[in-house]
Amino acid sequence: MDKNINIKLRIWRQKGPKEKGAFETYELENVYQGSSFLEMLDILNNKLICEGKEPVAFDHDCREGICGMCSLYINGHPHGPDEDVTTCQLHMRKFNDGDTITIEPWRSAGFPIIKDLMVDRSAFDKIIQAGGYVSVNTGGAPDANTIPIEKDKADAAMDAAACIGCGACVAACKNGSAMLFVAAKVSHLALLPQGRIEAAKRAKAMVAKMDELGFGNCTNTGACEIECPKNISITNIARLNREFLKAKFKD
C-alpha cells in the first residue's frame, strides 16, 4: 500500500553552463508514494518558491514516457531504479521512508549542463539532421500489406523505432558513447524498404556526425541497453557496425 514518506534529496545545483555546481540537500515530508518522481520535484519547487528560493531546473514535457524530454541520474541509474521506464513514469513507491535520493544531471562531454539538472542534448538533433530521415516524400501511410515486409523485420524496425532519444544510453555509458541511439535510428530505417535505399549513406553520415560531436567509442559494456527506458537492444549496434563496415568496404 502506498504511504506518505519522508525523504532527503541531494540535488546538483548549478547556476549556468560555466558556473561551478555543488550538491544541496533538501528535506521533504509526507510525500505520497503514489505520486510520480517529477510530481515530487514539483512539490519541492513549490516549497522553494514559497520560501523565495530559486526552483530546481529539470527537463520534462509529456510526462507519459513518449517525448524523451525528461532525464536525471537518480541513485546511480539514468531514469532511476525502476526497470524500463522514463523518469516521468517513475513513482515514489520505489523509495522508502527515510531514504536519501541523489539526483544528478546526465554527465557526458556531449551533453553540457545548461542549468541544475538540465543538459543540452541538441547533439542528438544534429546527428538526426546528418541523415536520420528519408530524403524524398514517400507519400501518406500506405494501405496495410501493399508492401510486403517480413514479420521479424517489421518487429525489429518497430522495436528500434521505440527510441525516444532521451540520452540515457550516453548517460549510462562509461565511454560517453551514443552508439545505442545512432544504432536505433539507423536500424529502424535500414530495416524497411523506404529507408533501405539510403542505408549506407545514412550510416556513414550519422556515425561521422556522432564522432565529430565528441561521443566516445563503444566497447560493448551493455550499460546502455540495461538502462534504456525503451529496451532498445544492443543487437542494433551490431547492425549499425555491419551497415557501416559494409558501406566503407564498398567505397
Binding site: G21, F23, Y73, N75, G76, T102, E104, R107, S108, A109, G110, I113, C173, K174, N175, G176, S177, G214, F215, G216, N217
Partner: peptide, 10 residues
C-alpha cells in the same frame, strides 16, 4: 575525454 570532466557522485 568523451565521458567529460565532471563525474557522477553516486
Amino acid at each position: 575525454k568523451a565521458r567529460g570532466k565532471e563525474r557522477y557522485e553516486s
